[in-house]
Structures are given as structure tokens and as C-alpha cells.
Design a protein around this nucleic acid. Structure first.
Lengths: 336, 336
DNA sequence: GCAGCAAATGATATCGATATCAAGATATCG
DNA sequence: CGATATCTTGATATCGATATCATTTGCTGC
């Protein structure tokens, strides 16, 4: 067949193949292949000559061909859970923060990040990935199992307990809860409240650490269940406490927005923060530091979390053993 | 060669190929290929038989092989700019909001999203993509040109002006500015201030629409340049205005955090919002609505923006003409 | 001078899918 | 009944890279 390779688009140059380079250089294509991958099997001089030629001809490797031959894709699928409530943005912001670390680490190792939602995860490209990283609060056992059937290396972000048979990376939510408890106890608080949704595994851990550490001092917190992570929901929580005439002197909210709402509502009720009530949030979002009053909060290291997820993934791909791991968190004490 | 195909991992099942299915079904592999792609060329009965067989055997298509044969990857690279300041999170939150729409739209069309940073964009996998979507505030002409050399279809998110020879999708920042101007004029404000960094193309557009619309009423705003998008920076802007004894009765900040900081600083200075000064922010972040007082803001539709980027991309991949397009924004008037 | 070895290169098969062209089977028509 | 059209299936080549095994050349040592 003598027909010219047709470019993908009219403007684009027809792609050179290794065979073309080989002809130009007067060698065989396998030599080109070796030269371009810096193999010591080819003479250094030849190697450089071919590399220069490739550069000046604008040669681009055909990744599909290489992947086919090598039976791997050098790609990791990152599967993000959609929030149940679809009306707002598709993504939760926090799982996405992990993407930074993931992307950096994988890119450095020569891997690419294929981003999908749970819905899209059945797509062919995901099955072609060398591994999967699952992100997002709602990662439940059943979903995980479904993905596990794909038979790919898999790492999950989240709370430990639920997924015993998988590699899980997550912040030490339990430690976060304990740290806040210690902080409250240190301040002499005896009637703390926890605001959040313990149905969520990670938040359950926070609560659980909080409760355990308090129990060591004979203190038992009150749980106010709130499912939303909004400022309004935080205000509402405090208002409902007030309406029930509950007395409390400390409040631990499982998100900064909840905490901020709580602070606002407390102010409206004429209660001073932190004089009357100590408040601690979670996540230490950028706004927390410049909130008035500056909000105390538990900080998770998303960047490091993402890196760690990626490193576990790479280890599994290389058939090395990988253990679940928990990342320390920091209680940042500010004005509240 | 009679050696068994070795599975990627010990636990994983060896992958079936079309040839294996063909043998099982007693047909040729091309028939399997046709059956699985619902080709009308094969007898309906045969087709269903093969599809059932594939399902029950857990057959998975080898995407690399298909991509190689078809000379396309069904993948779109999304290239996110890193913030110059690397110390915090890698990503700006806002470009990421576009990912929702992009991902939904592309997934629905059978494409995957390959996420990279500018640094990682030279990786082989990006070159294998069928197209590129560039996101991020700092998308400058030189960077764009560099990517353009890859010869792939490309769509850029951002301000129009700068990139005449590319398909650009973005919010109508100019309209946003005009809308705020009209709002201020309607309230009888005559001494407005703009806070932001007009060195950024999108913000320049906001300022420019703002200035133009005000000029029609003989009003000329004061520009306070602030590069950061933080609450502290917004407070600082107002404080510096106060220190210079500038009188103003309206403030348009190019981000919600700046606007919130401004409101706080105004309160501290004893000036009432909105009685003494009207304030409008930009982006309408979730917090804006529950801010005290609820913040007026200009809302961009990120979801739709992402969808549109993706649709343009798909059109270009199909060799259809694609035009730059500008999305309307909405001024949400609340208490400020 | 020749066995033996290392260095450099190449011929061929292969990864798993699909396009092309050919061909057998069946149906339709005059 | 033979010719033509239609339906269904298959043999083969191909996409572009790399692994394997073979081959050539030059060199060392005895």
C-alpha cells in the first residue's frame, strides 16, 4: 500500500513512526526503539544520532502501540464519588484537593491520571488503567467491592475500619477527635457538643476519638446530628441547642463551615467565643484563619495524603506489598 | 507458543481476547469484534450469543489495541495551570469546578479525561490524547502556543481578547462588570472602587466592563490593585482607602473573599453595609449566601462552562467548526 | 591461527483489535 | 433454471511499538 498516512487533522503533520526514522537513519526500527529508550545496547554515537534525528523530525511515540506491546497503560484511574445532591457542583472540593498530590506524584513517576466519576468508571479506558484510586466521602463497601472485581490494584481514601481487605489511606480522624478533646479538657471545659453526621465513616472516627478521649476524664459529649456542611446548618445546630436550653461550653464541628455558623449563632445569642464556648472546626480551610474570630481547626494534609495514595498505588503496580496508612493531623489553635 | 498468558497480578484473571471468545463461540474473531460493537453485519442471533458469552466470561476490551488500530485514543487531556506559589495546594479551586461539567460531558460521549499539570503535559500520554483543554488563570499566550505545536485540537478557558487564533470559552467577565456598574448606578452610588488585579486577563475584562458602563453615567471608579484573593487582602484594601481618606460608597471586588474582607474592614471602621457602602463580590461561592450580611456576588456557571468546553472539544475532534463562546453571568443581589 | 567472547545490529514474531476484500449461503426474479 | 442481489462470515493485512533469538564484527588469549 503506497497511500500516504493521512494526518488526524488537515493542519497536523503526518506522524512519523519508528520505521520512518529507521529508514532515515539507515538502521532497523528496533535500533531506533533502543536508541530512543537510552538502551546501552546501541552504540553511543548511533544512539545520539538517532535521538537528534527524532528530535529534529518531531517524532512522537505512539503510546497505544507501546501500551499494547507492553501490556500496561501507565495510567491510573482516579474515581471521584459524586455527591448525592447533584444540583450544585458535581464535585466536593475536598477529594479534589487530594488530586494535587496524586497528580504530582504520578506524573513524576511517568504515570498519567485518568479522572472519572463513579458513573464513568465502567468506561473502557478505566479498565485499561494499571490501577485505581478511589476518592470521596461516600466510598462505601459495596461500591468498593464492585471496583475490586476489575482485578486492578486499588487504593481507597477514607476511614480505616470499613475496608479491611483493601489498602486504605486516610487522615487520622480518631487522633483529630482526641486532640480536640484534649484541647477542651485543657481549657477546663466539661460540657462539649459534637456537630456532624456520624453516619459518615470518617466523621464517625472523629466522634469516636473525641468520645474516647473525653471519657478518660469522665466527660460525655452531646451529639447534634447535622448532615449538611453549611454555615446555615451550623447556626441551626446552635439555635436548636439554645431552644432546648442545653448548656454547653465547647463545640467541635466536623467542618469549618459548620463551626463558623456555630460561632455566628452563638454571637447572636449573646454568648462570647471563646470565653463562654470554645469552638473547633475541621479541615482548616483557607478562610478559617481570616475568619473573625480566627477559627481553631484540625488540619489535614491533603497534599501529603494525595502523594501517599499515589505512592501506595505505584508500589502495588510494581507488585510490592502496600499497607494501609494513617496520616497525622494537626490541631491549629487560634482564637476560638 | 503454548505458554499461558500471564495475568498482570497473581490474583487477577488472565484476560480473554477476542480470539479466545472466537474459539469459544466457534466463529472468527472479526465476527466477535462486529458482534460486540453491535454491527448489523452479523446475524442478530449470533450477535446476542456472542455478547452473552462475552459478558459471562468477563471479557474486557483491550483499549490499547483498539486505539492503535483506530488511530485515536478517545481521551482528552485537561491541562491545569499550577499556581506560581506552590507552597499551598497545587490547584486553584475554580478551574477545578469546571472539571465537573467537562467530565460529565466527555464521559457521556465515551471519552476519558486525562488530568495533567503544565509540567506533566509533555508526557507521552498527553500527546496521545485526541485533544486538549487548557484551564487556569495564568493561561498565557506563550504557554498556549507551546501546546498548540502539538497539533491537537485545543480549547482554552479564559478571557477572549488574548487568544484570537484559538477557540476560547469563558464567562462574560465584561458583562459581569457592567452588571455591577448598573447595580451601583441604580442605587445612586457615584464613587465606586474596584479591588483586584487587572493584570489578570479575566479580571481586566471585569474592570473594563465596569469602567465602561460607569462612564456612560459620567462616573469613574477608583482602582485598588490587590493580587491576593484572600479575606486579609480585602480588609487591607479598605484600610488603605481609609488611611488615604478616600471617600467611596460602593466596592466591587473581583473575588468573594476580597469582598468579605472588605465588609469586615468596613464594619470595623464603623461604616455600615450596604447603607454607607454597597459591596459586590465575584464567583458567588457557597459561603457568600450565608455570610453575614449575605453577600451580593456575580455568579459564573462553572458546570455549564465545563460542559461547553467539552462540547467544543468534541466538535473539533469530529472536525466540525467551533467558535469561541462567552457565557452569561448573573449578578445575585443579596444584602450588601 | 583459531576458539571464545563481547559489542552492535537486525529479522521475525507478537501484543489485540479492526478494515478490506473475498467468498459461501440463501433469496429473488425473469 | 440460471443470474443477480442480499445476508452472513471469514482470511489476511495492518496499526506501531518491543522481546527474542540470531547474526555480524572486532578483539582477546593461548
Amino acid at each position: 500500500m503506497s497511500r500516504k498516512r493521512k494526518p488526524a487533522r488537515p493542519g497536523a503533520p503526518a506522524n512519523l513512526t519508528m520505521a520512518d526514522l529507521a529508514k532515515l537513519a539507515g538502521v532497523s526500527k528496533i535500533t531506533v526503539s533502543r536508541a530512543l529508550s537510552d538502551s546501552p545496547l546501541v552504540n553511543q554515537e548511533t544512539r545520539e544520532r538517532i535521538q537528534d534525528l527524532a528530535r529534529e523530525q518531531g517524532y512522537k511515540l505512539n503510546v497505544s502501540a507501546r501500551n499494547l506491546r507492553l501490556r500496561r497503560s501507565h495510567t491510573v484511574a482516579v474515581i471521584v464519588e459524586m455527591k448525592p445532591s447533584n444540583d450544585r457542583t458535581m464535585f466536593d472540593p475536598y477529594p479534589l484537593m487530594l488530586l494535587g498530590g496524586i497528580s504530582q506524584e504520578l506524573t513524576a513517576a511517568g504515570y498519567s491520571v485518568l479522572l472519572t466519576t463513579r458513573q464513568g468508571a465502567s468506561a473502557a479506558a478505566v479498565q485499561a488503567a494499571d490501577g485505581m484510586i478511589l476518592l470521596g466521602q461516600g466510598v462505601r463497601q459495596d461500591a468498593v467491592r464492585r471496583f475490586d472485581k476489575l482485578g486492578l490494584p486499588m487504593v481507597v481514601w477514607g476511614a480505616q475500619g470499613d475496608h479491611d481487605d483493601h489498602v486504605v489511606v486516610g487522615s487520622d480522624n480518631r487522633q483529630g477527635g482526641r486532640a480536640v478533646a484534649a484541647h477542651f479538657i485543657g481549657l477546663g471545659r466539661r460540657n462539649p457538643v459534637f456537630v456532624g453526621n456520624p453516619g459518615h465513616p470518617e466523621i464517625f472516627e472523629r466522634l469516636s476519638g473525641f468520645v474516647d478521649a473525653l471519657a478518660e476524664h469522665g466527660v460525655k459529649p452531646l451529639l447534634i446530628r447535622r448532615d449538611e456542611f453549611t454555615l446555615a446548618s451550623g447556626m441551626d445546630a446552635v439555635q436548636s441547642l439554645a431552644a432546648r436550653h442545653v448548656s454547653f461550653d465547647a463545640l467541635f464541628a466536623c467542618s469549618d463551615l459548620l463551626a463558623m455558623g456555630a460561632v455566628r449563632a452563638l454571637e447572636e445569642l449573646g454568648r462570647r467565643v471563646p470565653r463562654d464556648v470554645s469552638v473547633v472546626g475541621y479541615d482548616d480551610m483557607p478562610l478559617a484563619a481570616s475568619f473573625q474570630p480566627p477559627l481553631s481547626s484540625v488540619r489535614q494534609d491533603w497534599q501529603e495524603g494525595g502523594s501517599l495514595l499515589a505512592r501506595k498505588m505505584l508500589a502495588m503496580i510494581r507488585d510490592e506489598a502496600a499497607q494501609s496508612e494513617v496520616l497525622p493531623v494537626n490541631l491549629i489553635v487560634r482564637a476560638t
